[in-house]
């Protein structure tokens, strides 16, 4: 299994933002996306994760292979850490949350309501969800926001373990994750040209 993206163009709100993107991701490899704010990294990741259809081109793998994690962690404040994780484990049909709890050092927080966690702890819980999905391709949007140095290292280790078992990771980030083996791609050059308007009147149609 390998993730192949061919000649992908993506749009946000009907306006093309990136076009002509192609890349390959083999099992055990990670690809880090870089680019200035607003270039369309989030839109690209949402398209790859299957949340929105591409403008043109194709994503080689089915959306069932993707585990998506965005800025919002999808954590319910009134459920405890363990309840939040078990819910996702049941939804994805994996069941066991112990590796996820251990992987992100959440054991002490296990029975705490998630609403009482700090921003970094919430982020760790959000990332721990990836471990219970059991899916091969991690599609991550700015995963290290509000994490401290130790937690970033924890996250790097989790990604490395995932890659070692044949998983793949597609990560949009601005900071150095310590993943030296990962390839880096700058999406800046793929910025879509503004659509040419042939007939001025058509703008209003």
């Amino acid at each position: 299994m390998e993730l192949e993206v061919r000649n992908l163009s993506v749009s946000r709100g009907g306006v093309p933002v990136l076009e002509g993107l192609s890349f390959r991701l083999a099992p055990g490899r990670a690809l880090i996306l870089r680019g200035p704010n607003g270039i369309g990294k989030t839109t690209l990741l949402r398209t790859v994760a299957g949340l929105q259809p591409p403008l043109s081109g194709e994503v080689g793998l089915d959306r069932e292979a993707m585990a998506y994690a965005a800025h919002a962690d999808g954590i319910k404040a009134t459920l405890t850490v363990a309840e939040n994780l078990s819910f996702w484990a049941q939804v994805f049909g994996t069941g066991d949350i112990t590796p996820a709890i251990d992987g992100f050092a959440l054991d002490e927080l296990r029975n705490r309501p998630a609403g009482g966690l700090s921003a970094g702890q919430k982020r760790r819980l959000g990332l721990a969800r990836l471990l219970v999905t059991g899916r091969p391709v991690w599609v991550l949007d700015e995963p290290t926001v509000s994490l401290d140095v130790d937690a970033v290292a924890m996250f790097g280790a989790a990604v490395r373990r995932h890659l070692a078992t044949g998983g793949m990771a597609l990560i949009a980030t601005h900071i150095d994750l310590g993943l030296d083996e990962a390839e880096v791609m700058d999406v800046g050059p793929f910025k879509a040209k503004p659509p040419k308007v042939e007939d001025f009147d058509e703008v209003f149609l």
Binding site: A49, G50, L51, R63, M66, A67, Y68, A69, A70, H71, A72, D73, G74, I75, K76, W88, V91, R129
Partner: peptide
């Protein structure tokens, strides 16, 4: 954000 995650 749970709705996005449920959708995937």
């Amino acid at each position: 954000g749970s709705l996005d995650l449920i959708a995937t």
